[in-house]
Simulated scan of single mutants.
Amino acid sequence: MTKPDSQALMGVQLLEVSAGLEGQRIDNFLLARLKGVPKTMIYRILRKGEVRVNKGRIKPDYKIKAGDVVRVPPIRMTQADEPAPIAKGLLERLEAAIVYEDKGLIVLNKPAGIAVHGGSGLNYGVIEAFRQIRPQNKEMELVHRLDRDTSGLLMIAKRRSMLRYLHEALRGDGVDKGYMALVRGRWPATRKQVDAPLQRSNLRSGERLVEVNPEGKEALTLFKVLRRFGDYATLVEASPITGRTHQIRVHALYAGHAIAGDSKYGDDIFSKEIRELGGKRLFLHASDLKVTLPDGEVLAVHADPDEQWQAVVAQLEQA
């Protein structure tokens, strides 16, 4: 007796982007519409260039426009399109992390170690969790992203109009974001900015790597010393003026002061010493967010880093 096929082959699809959906990344657009298709499959066809927009190739970070026609190649989809249930404990943890909410926006203090979305071997992230927490909000989307290991303030739009508004604000100077970072060595007070172009490349494994390169895109980060721990480490405030991938992490390394716990751009010895103090995380935290809302109200939010971070800082103060 043969088992019933749990998958069905879906033929070529042409998806037209209607007004009101513009500004989304192509991966989020497809994830919302190809229910039952494994996330790994969606990211695979994007990486291989099999998804076409207006008959042309696009990059995985392409942002869709109203009127675009997206061609999806034949792919297999599961018959069940219900999302995998997410552990109740995680849902409650994320619910408790909300620091601001209104009818169009959620701001939460994302814990370190939780991805903002599923993909690359992950079944879910923050956005999938919130779609289960708030099933009535059908248009919920991430406004921006944080690296999985970075903690701190993350915006989720509950309405398409809010998403469009905040994307426009992010493209201009309507959103101010501030970060805290624990870095190696004594950051000099005179080093107030790092202005160095960044270039991104993708390794064969699919991992992204960013480096300072004269041929890269303009990137500027402002830095301010918050607290020094002798010559051993410094707590700094970092304000990215541009929004490049891994910008703060690479600029800190370029300045000679790698961030603690950074497995990609950090200093292994420094990170090991901080880990021995109990700091088993990346010491980069999105602490401050300031944005003017559509009604003219200025929203300013601050979030402290977690207890693990604060415990390490307390030990450094006593050393």
Rank of each mutant, 00 (worst) to 15 (best):
A260D: 04
D231G: 09
L299G: 00
L284A: 00
K138G: 04
V225H: 07
Q132M: 02
V212W: 03
I133N: 04
L108W: 03
K224M: 06
A196Q: 08
V183I: 08
G118A: 06
D5N: 12
E168A: 15
V210E: 02
K280S: 15
K55A: 12
R44K: 14
Q247W: 07
W187H: 07
N137E: 13
Q7I: 13
L277G: 09
P240G: 01
T245Y: 08
D306L: 06
L15I: 14
L226H: 09
L299E: 03
P305Y: 01
P4F: 14
E139R: 07
L90A: 04
D262F: 04
R228Q: 09
T78C: 12
I274K: 02
M180I: 15
L154D: 10
E139K: 07
G278T: 04
P85N: 06
R57G: 08
R76Y: 15
K48C: 12
D61V: 14
L166N: 06
K224C: 02
P60H: 06
F29M: 07
T242G: 02
V175G: 03
A196G: 07
G36N: 08
E82W: 11
E218F: 12
L299P: 01
V126P: 00
G152V: 04
G104N: 13
A8L: 15
H246K: 08
H251C: 05
T242I: 06
D195A: 12
Y232P: 01
V225Q: 06
I106E: 01
R275E: 15
H246F: 06
Q318A: 14
L90R: 04
